[in-house]
Amino acid sequence: MTAARNSAARNPLAALWWVPRGIIFGLMAFFIFGPLFNLLLWTVAEKWYFPYSLPLEYGFSSWAKVFAPRGGAMESLTNSLVVALLTVVVSLLLAIPAGYALARLKLPFRGLILLAFLIPQAFPNLTVYVNIARIFYEIKLNGTIPGVVLVHVSHGLVYAVWIATAAFSAIDVELEQAARNIGAGAFRAFLDVTLPLAAPGLMASAIFVFLESLDEFTGSYFVGAPDVNMLPLLLYTTAAGGNYQIASITALLLLVPSLVFMLIVERFLKADVLSRVGH
């Protein structure tokens, strides 16, 4: 302690080392939490206009409008949750056998198969969804929940298959072989040994798919609108109309589950699983 004080006394600039770091961390906190604080203010602002930096009146009348029968928020929230849950179910039904095969079997062109799941992310979403909407219109899927689910699954499979493959790869194959040696069949060994061990990774995969579906706008717009109302569509229409209170409340409804689920993912996804993603 005395040596540090003597060093600071000899070199006054050394005592100011925390100033640039404090400025950097302060700016980072402002850019991260500033927009969130502004969002929260708009959710309770009754009257707020330039040049005032804070709302002139506070209240919850906008919340009542959002959740009123004619507000559209409850219908949009219900549709978003139903579509997200169905997307998770379909994605996992496809990803679990695919991930297990990619992790356990010596498949030719395994790397190309994994890369193929990234194709939906490789092209501009707008052009892809315009053509999907045209095809779905011809087969009567446009403007339906199954149609929206299929579009969301095309993006959700990226997370589902890659994380499922990593989860199964992180499990020692000898555990499954030990179950087979004491008389369990292949399917029984998978259900009793491999699947429970892979459950945390699969749960994290499901959460990623759920959040991706919940926030998906472009596919929901071109395939679902105007018959299937979703929260991202409500957020877009209210923000475009200048109703920032309703838009902020809708954005908060989308933000809260994202924050909660990301904390859950952080607990489920271990380092051994993350190290095998893409391998």
Rank of each mutant, 00 (worst) to 15 (best):
L41P: 04
V273D: 01
P257T: 09
G22K: 07
F168Y: 06
V82R: 02
S62V: 13
A178P: 05
I119S: 10
S53W: 15
A179K: 10
L114Q: 13
A178F: 02
F136Y: 06
F67G: 01
N131M: 15
P146W: 02
E46A: 10
L211C: 04
S213Q: 00
L81T: 05
L105C: 08
A3I: 08
L269Y: 00
T194P: 09
V260L: 05
L254Q: 02
L233N: 06
I163P: 09
T194N: 11
K106H: 12
M203L: 10
S91M: 00
Y129S: 09
P200T: 02
K47A: 15
D272Q: 12
N181V: 12
R267G: 02
A178T: 02
A160K: 00
V19K: 04
I163C: 10
G34I: 04
A8Q: 09
A103D: 07
L253M: 12
H152E: 04
V223S: 00
Y159C: 06
A239H: 07
V90G: 00
L39A: 01
W162G: 06
A116Q: 03
L157W: 00
P120Q: 06
L141V: 03
V83G: 06
A206Y: 05
T218H: 09
A206P: 08
L274P: 06
N229M: 15
G143P: 07
D272C: 08
L39Q: 05
T43L: 14
F136E: 00
P55D: 07
A4N: 11
T250F: 12
T194W: 09
L252A: 01
Y244S: 10
F30M: 09
Y236Q: 13
F30V: 04
F25P: 01
L93H: 08
L112P: 10
N125H: 15
M262L: 15
W162Q: 13
L141D: 05
V158A: 15
P12W: 04
F168C: 05
A198R: 04
L115H: 13
A73V: 03
H279F: 14
L254C: 04
L252H: 03
L195F: 06
F50R: 15
T78V: 12
L115A: 15
A167R: 10
F190T: 10
V44W: 08
R188P: 09
F25Q: 05
S154F: 13
A29Y: 06
G147Q: 01
E266G: 12
F268A: 11
V83T: 05
D192A: 14
K47Y: 13
R110Q: 09
P124Q: 13
